[in-house]
């Protein structure tokens, strides 16, 4: 109970921080980057549910993001659907697809699962590219409308920031509750030893499929939000590279930690902006940073940063640090 209370306080503090953020950045371009941090946070948390809690790897999560984006985009831009309705359809369709796919695909383990999800991602990517009549093909789909609540049109960065972070906060809250629920404990049991979990009466395979589908659903919602924020989408944003970037966000942030995913998403989204000063060298710095961060913070940022502080702070602080 007290653990839950702590989580709630953390969440409320973070919500407050989100609410006041535009006061500092509004008008600047960082506001725009923070919108994407919100989307990537949702994606990273979605993947973390699968990767960190259930221990199932996916190298094709960009596909669910892409499906969400494209279903929303095509329904609104080509067929004139209401964006909210399109978002709902995208979420349900992607959820069902992941649910059906989940049964055969989650029977696989380890690198076989990695390969299968990777293959799924590539199939979706190629389909988005090849169905030119439907998706516009590699040159992309434009003219996607912004979301709207009665007369409030989400057409600038500050409005989009609040819109997307509302969804991101809901995602955080849901995931925190899920992680601390009976399901979360069962998931962790699967993570540690699936056989043991089965013996203890956990319906492991069905639970895994449910989490897979939930994760796909959150990714699809993030995809819809992305489509309606950008108003233009192209398949290049949903390729293998982005799937890998998502896994990187989760691992760099800290497996199994909700706020870790948030940190990972923030870091990997903001990093390219800071690396712009390196120009063409940024790819080298980026690669090096991935290696160094993983080497020195194997538990991710969320465990690594306090660890670093611990190492930097003088010895006498350590005793008192426990309650802080």
């Amino acid at each position: 109970m007290s653990h839950m209370k702590k989580e709630m306080i953390k969440f409320l503090l973070f919500t407050a921080a989100v609410i006041i953020t535009p006061l500092f950045f509004s008008g600047g371009y960082l506001m725009n980057v923070l919108v994407f941090v919100g989307i990537n946070t949702m994606l990273a948390i979605a993947l973390n549910l699968l990767l960190g809690f259930a221990g199932q790897i996916s190298l094709g999560h960009a596909a669910f993001f892409g499906l969400g984006s494209y279903i929303s985009g095509v329904l609104t831009a080509t067929h004139g659907f209401d964006p909210w309705l399109a978002m709902l359809i995208a979420a349900i369709a992607t959820f069902l697809m992941a649910f059906l796919l989940g049964f055969p695909i989650l029977k696989l383990k380890g690198h076989y699962l990695a390969m299968a999800t990777l293959g799924f991602g590539i199939i979706v990517y190629i389909s988005l590219n090849e169905t030119v009549g439907l998706t516009g093909g590699p040159s992309g789909l434009s003219g996607i409308p912004n979301l709207q609540i009665s007369s409030l049109l989400f057409d600038n960065d500050v409005k989009n920031f609040y819109l997307i972070w509302t969804f991101a906060l809901v995602t955080i809250l849901l995931s925190t509750n899920l992680a601390n629920s009976r399901i979360g404990r069962a998931l962790r049991a699967i993570h540690d030893s699936e056989i043991a979990a089965r013996v203890m009466g956990v319906n492991a395979s069905f639970l895994k499929v449910q989490i897979f589908a939930l994760s796909a659903l959150i990714s699809a919602v993030a995809g819809s939000l992305y489509a309606h924020t950008m108003t233009f989408i192209s398949p290049a944003s949903f390729g293998f590279n982005f799937s890998v970037e998502l896994v990187t966000m989760v691992v760099i942030g800290g497996l199994g930690s909700i706020y870790g995913s948030l940190l990972g998403a923030a870091l990997l989204t903001l990093l390219p902006e800071f690396l712009r000063t390196f120009q063409d060298y940024d790819i080298i710095v980026y690669g090096l940073l991935l290696i160094v961060m993983t080497m020195f913070m194997p538990g991710g940022l969320v465990r690594g940063i306090p660890g670093l502080f611990g190492a930097l702070l003088p010895k006498r602080m350590e005793g008192g640090g426990e309650n802080a």
Binding site: Y29, N32, F36, S234
Partner: peptide, 30 residues
């Protein structure tokens, strides 16, 4: 496309440019 949007926002908001040339690809431009 995502990076193009971020970079264009940065040019407009932070660097306050008077005109933009590029981008290279149709997707980035759209």
């Amino acid at each position: 496309a995502t990076r193009a949007v971020q970079a264009a926002t940065r040019l407009i908001r932070q660097d306050k440019v008077t005109a933009i040339i590029g981008p290279s690809t149709t997707g980035d431009t759209m």
